[in-house]
Design a protein around this nucleic acid. Structure first.
Lengths: 222, 222
DNA sequence: TTTTATTAATAGTATTACTATCATATATTT
DNA sequence: AAATATATGATAGTAATACTATTAATAAAA
């Protein structure tokens, strides 16, 4: 995948002006990813971002109506990217079991830098998803935002993998719960392994998160 | 459990002045639970709380050093309460399988009001844990706070149930990951079932969350 | 009754998450 | 080349937030 130049398209309700369309927009995305990872979402502000990119707070507001909207955009970008990886990896695979195993791998593995997308650092973005994405949907506005389609990419990924689960076992009752449990669970385990390790059983170099969820899925759907 | 009057003790690093020790303190706890549930954590403020309880913002600050500290207190209270329920329910049970099944039930069931604790509405508190608790530990200060013992009650609950998992299967490699996955997962599913239902397979009256996690655990540890 | 502790009232601070306005630079069209 | 449109930058302003500090009033304990 390293040298392909792939286009990830984000639906227009997620921004005011498309950040991919200008140099400044791309700078907003790439620098906000760096800054949110470094400062945390609470301490990140559009003013600080403006200073860092040599631009202005008010210019950033021409791309995103709020800090929250920018986070939602980043989350959507991330899931589009994951969806692309899923489709790409499973494109020529016919065995449902292999497809499922690939999918679990993609959902639970540690992300390291891949250079297919110029202005997004996926490794940092993955850390943001792990640490901050729950703040996006744990809001009083969730229902209104969901209706506007803010979370549809995430839901589409869950649906896609649930369908693979059903290919493996058409009678399994809870495919969506299983997939969303694995996704959220793997993120929690990565976070806990760094900050609250007693909640995990992570050991260096043993890839326990991927192993645990792979085994959990295969046993659960039997 | 209905009429027992049980004492839940919260360790002193979680408050400045013990809210259980005064009428005002108890009012702060009970009213903040109602208000956080109603407004969401972001829109809840000590000023609004002061107005509602006929007291003053500055008085609230004598009990808790910050809004965040109050949330951590509530989370700790919740896990102490869950721990009490676990110990109580399993006190005379010798079968590890039954103990585990009871524990999963307690972790994943829907909470309805129980009146053992006068000034805490556990049903609302449970909703707060589901919707807001991840905001407490997804902070840049997590490591410092963890060292101060802010999250020890939660960690103790996970440890306790992990030990039951190991009683059932002493060779199971990932007891902590399994238990923390079930806890966080069940909370997510309850939240998703209300706001992003396509991420779940919840059906009215079928108790699918409890059924899903009970089956997942029993299959996974085999 | 005096001391002490607790709470209430008021005011103040730095920062945040925006909005509004206007000037300027650059690009596009005519 | 002139006219026009568009994008950006600079500055200022607003209401609210998350506190801190100070002082006064009141209730409980010695």
């Amino acid at each position: 995948m390293e040298n392909l130049q792939i286009q990830i398209t984000i639906s227009p309700e997620l921004y005011i002006k498309n950040p991919e369309s200008t140099e400044l927009g791309r700078k907003i995305i790439s620098t906000s990813i760096e800054m949110i990872d470094e400062l945390g979402f609470e301490s990140f502000t559009f003013r600080k971002l403006g200073v860092k990119i040599g631009s202005n707070e008010s210019s950033v507001y021409r791309y995103f109506e709020s800090k929250h909207a920018l986070l939602v955009y980043l989350i959507s970008w991330y899931w589009s990217w994951i969806e692309y990886k899923l489709v790409f990896t499973n494109s020529n695979i016919s065995s449902p079991l292999v497809k499922l195993s690939n999918a679990i791998q993609i959902l639970t593995e540690e992300i390291t830098q891949d250079n297919a997308f110029s202005f997004v650092n996926e490794e940092l973005l993955n850390r943001i998803i792990i640490a901050e994405s729950s703040k996006a949907y744990h809001t009083k506005d969730i229902d209104a935002e969901n209706e506007k389609g803010y979370y549809k990419t995430y839901k589409r990924v869950v649906k896609r993998i649930s369908d693979v689960v059903l290919e493996v076992n058409p009678k399994f009752e809870f495919p969506h719960m299983l997939v969303s449990t694995v996704i959220e669970g793997a993120h929690h385990q990565r976070y806990f392994s760094k900050h609250l390790p007693s909640l995990t059983d992570v050991e260096k170099g043993k890839n326990n998160i991927v192993r645990f969820y792979t085994s959990l899925v295969s046993k659960t759907i039997k």
